[in-house]
Design a binder for these strands. Structure first.
Lengths: 222, 222
DNA sequence: GATAGTTTCATACAACTGTTTGAATTGCAA
DNA sequence: TTGCAATTCAAACAGTTGTATGAAACTATC
């Protein structure tokens, strides 16, 4: 087990470099130079480059998921076992958005790494993302408790859309800033969360009137 | 100018291979083998690998943008110079969704290539995407004509969210299918377009009541 | 303080990458 | 047909990549 110093400094050097330059532009040699360890250390401690990336991403994903579930649990307890749809969605998108948006200079390495992972999707990361489904099901279940009369399908679409808006905002914050000539304030994270949650809630609850009649009819028929 | 055969077969072989295996897994040697041309032909005709990718992506992007603008123009003419917000959003997300969703077996190589480009974002493609802003501004302008009383910022957020939902649906259709156990029908493109447009319209028009008071107040103050 | 197990290190490996070169071939115009 | 440009080709280039090796340096246990 030893001091773990080598392992740790590889992890933090890799995270920093990937965050700054992207996965395609960073080699193992860059990482070991930054970490000041031997080249062979990466394969010794992690097995391969991909497993190193996977470990970085898993660590950060688990942290985010834990935060989400904590918020969800807190909201459900506060509501006597049933959280409002608002609170559920806030628990889903809040942690990621708070971590990855806000003033650029204040962003942690971890946040910048996750933004990068969101922009450049490499195979080891894609593999891990595909296992996130069980985690998301918990939010679908919470929604079911919050809106027991709703159609199941709507929960999945709502979930999907909420995540879509959150992730795209993280990924493309620069484009939105340029497009709006700076009018969209990407630093006001609370306002962005509110906006995304509001739209998602409408997607889930307010949709009935706005939706085309045949969709409603099709739902009733089931 | 000659026969152009080499150039063309490189383009179509590259598009097919990238679509099937992804950018990271396809080398120039794979492409020239598939196209049955000499290795040097790529650099001779395109200058570099990145320029080849850029040309592929630009071609398909321009086609999509043209479709979008045609739909927008048609909608505006039908409405006497002013299209409904519905129609504007349909023109924005319709072409991409119709092209990239629907039964998997029926998807064209071009569609599969664009899906791939949406999942794996490589530098030459990112560079081109960043120049899409002028194109999007035309949709913001159309929205301004459709809803002259609305705050400018809302158009940008609405545009951004609509594209976010469309693109994430294309990118992650598999995850949504798995998450919903097949309950979300990704083959019914018309229904998906309706759903995304409906949510986007609500984001743009129905939001007033659902939004937190301070946002509304801030808007009024300006 | 010898021993066994872990960790580090310099170095080599082997394969693959996009790109270039210069000669051969082709196509077209005069 | 001759001449000139455009195109194709085989081959090599110049680097880089992730990974493996086997010896050296540690560390902790007895």
């Amino acid at each position: 087990m030893a001091s773990d110093r080598t392992r740790t400094s590889i992890l933090s050097a890799a995270e920093r470099l990937y965050a700054d330059r992207g996965f395609g532009e960073v080699t193992l040699r860059d990482i070991v130079a930054e970490a000041d360890v031997n080249l062979a250390a990466v394969n010794y401690h992690f097995g391969s480059k991909d497993e190193l990336i996977a470990e970085l991403f898993v660590t950060r994903s688990l942290a985010t998921n834990r935060e989400r579930l904590n918020e969800l649990k807190a909201a459900e307890e506060a509501g006597g076992g049933r959280a409002s749809i608002d609170a559920i969605l806030r628990a889903l998108v809040g942690p990621t958005l708070r971590g990855c948006l806000g003033p650029e200079r204040e962003r942690s390495t971890a946040a910048r790494f996750m933004i990068r992972a969101s922009i450049e999707s490499v195979p080891p990361i894609r593999r891990i993302r595909n296992r996130e489904i069980d985690h998301l099901r918990k939010f679908a279940a919470a929604m079911r408790r919050a809106l027991p009369d709703r159609d199941e399908v709507d929960f999945y679409w709502g979930l999907h859309f909420a995540l879509a808006m959150a992730h795209q905002t993280i990924r493309d914050s620069e484009r939105l800033t340029k497009l709006s000539d700076g009018q969209c304030d990407l630093n006001d994270v609370q306002a962005i969360i509110k906006r995304i949650v509001a739209v998602s809630v409408m997607a889930l609850t307010g949709g009935e009137v706005a939706k085309a009649p045949e969709i409603v009819a099709a739902r009733r028929a089931r």
